[in-house]
Design a protein around this nucleic acid. Structure first.
Ligand SMILES: [Zn+2]
Ligand SMILES: [Zn+2]
Ligand SMILES: [Zn+2]
Ligand SMILES: [Zn+2]
Lengths: 160, 160
DNA sequence: GCCGGTTATGTTATCTCATAACAGAAGGTG
DNA sequence: CACCTTCTGTTATGAGATAACATAACCGGC
């Protein structure tokens, strides 16, 4: 996937089998606890994200949606992504126009990403926004969300 | 421009007359110093950005490009934007698909934005990325660029 | 001046990404 | 069941960005 080298994609293996089922089950439970519904299309899109090892484009998800190769209609997937983002099950990476499943346990949170320009990996980390929030407060801003995307090379690609 | 209230756009007035000419002249000088060429379409796009008081979409620039209402062709403007970004004269705001002129003097630098969801203002500030760079280093990443976009409400819109 | 490499532009067409609008189905409540 | 709300299916279109290739301007050496 990288423009400059040929390392395998990503740092997350992508979930399969029981690990995948467990993750989907946990999502069901979190939805049930807040009166939200993890309906079939939402569950399917989350499954596709969890199975993947790298950020997925919306139209990749659209193409992979159907069980026997039939694509979904765009609004089906975009609506599911909107839901998954709202509940904190997925994040959009603006600089890639792509989506990843949340890899950090717990409730919805501020996300930040380390993105490898070589292999395409996108690693989520828990950001410390103290400095930036302080700058925002000084300017009189009430901050509701922050997106931070750092581009560069992952450890494997730096070594290679 | 805001979805929720009707404050005037932005915090930057947009340059006119001699202030605009001065800014464009300074850009010429910075280009000359590095063997880069501020050609007519590049200069025109920078002018449009400097005149504006809020982030401009690419197709807004395309529409406004010609002196007598004739639009530019998309590649003309996208190439100019690529140049302006490369030299640090402009920044792309990923979460808006829009562009702003750099409001911070000096050479190209890491940018960060406070974006008001109410009035559409996008205020550039000088970010302190110490915490995030330290987290990236711990994960073994070599970071080349960082984009940070904080969404919320500006001082005027918080008050109103 | 003019040749030849390099960089930039003009032009056409196409591609990717995302949403509006509306009809219908499913779920939940009394 | 009657009603309201939320979600889904479907069609069509809007918004954002780039590929590909031909032409033109710039700049060095000759
Ligand atoms: Zn997350
Ligand atoms: Zn990598
Ligand atoms: Zn700047
Ligand atoms: Zn505002």
């Amino acid at each position: 996937m990288g423009a400059e080298c040929h390392h395998p994609d990503g740092v997350h293996p992508g979930l399969k089998g029981s690990a995948l089922n467990h993750a989907l089950g946990a999502a069901e439970q979190r939805c049930a606890a807040t009166q939200e519904r993890l309906t079939a299309p939402r569950r399917r899109v989350l499954e596709l994200l969890l199975e993947s090892n790298s950020p997925q484009k919306a139209y990749d998800l659209i193409a992979a949606f159907g069980a026997h190769g039939e694509p979904a209609k765009p609004p089906t997937v975009y609506r599911a992504l909107e839901f998954l983002e709202r509940l904190g099950f997925a994040h959009r990476i603006e600089s890639l126009n792509a989506y990843v499943p949340c890899r950090i346990d717990g409730q919805s949170h501020r996300a930040a990403f380390l993105i490898c320009d070589c292999c395409g990996a996108a690693e989520e980390f828990e950001p410390d926004f103290t400095a930036q929030l302080s700058a925002a407060a000084k300017a009189g801003y009430q901050v509701s969300t922050i997106t931070l995307e750092a581009r560069g090379r992952c450890a494997a690609c730096s070594a290679g």
